[in-house]
């Protein structure tokens, strides 16, 4: 079966995010008020062929741990679902 995977990589809590801080500082200039805790991360999508959803998740976790995220500064959230 084919599954769609979404990996959201974000900086760990406590790690300074200069990109997020810059975006946040720009918002008032554009007239947006009341927005805070802006954090910039990345989203990575791919499709995986596996026997079942559990198998697809196992592969996605391994790819994320070994390549897509750096555990020193980042954490990842993985979403797996049937291919659309």
């Amino acid at each position: 079966m084919r599954f769609d995977v979404l990996v959201e990589v974000k900086l760990r809590p406590g790690i300074a995010d200069p990109q997020g801080a810059t975006v946040e500082r720009a918002l008032p200039a554009l007239g947006f008020a009341g927005i805070d805790t802006v954090r910039v991360g990345k989203a990575i999508r791919f499709a995986v062929e596996a026997a079942d959803e559990e198998g697809a998740r196992t592969q996605a976790v391994e790819v994320t741990d070994r390549l897509l995220s750096n555990p020193v500064i980042e954490e990842a959230e993985i979403t797996v679902g049937p291919a659309r």
């Binding site: 790690i15 300074a16 200069p18 990109q19 810059t22 750096n70 020193v72």
Partner: peptide, 11 residues
């Protein structure tokens, strides 16, 4: 080597 290199503070 330990640690990581992040984007510069101040971008």
């Amino acid at each position: 080597l330990p640690g990581a290199l992040q984007k510069n503070a101040g971008l």
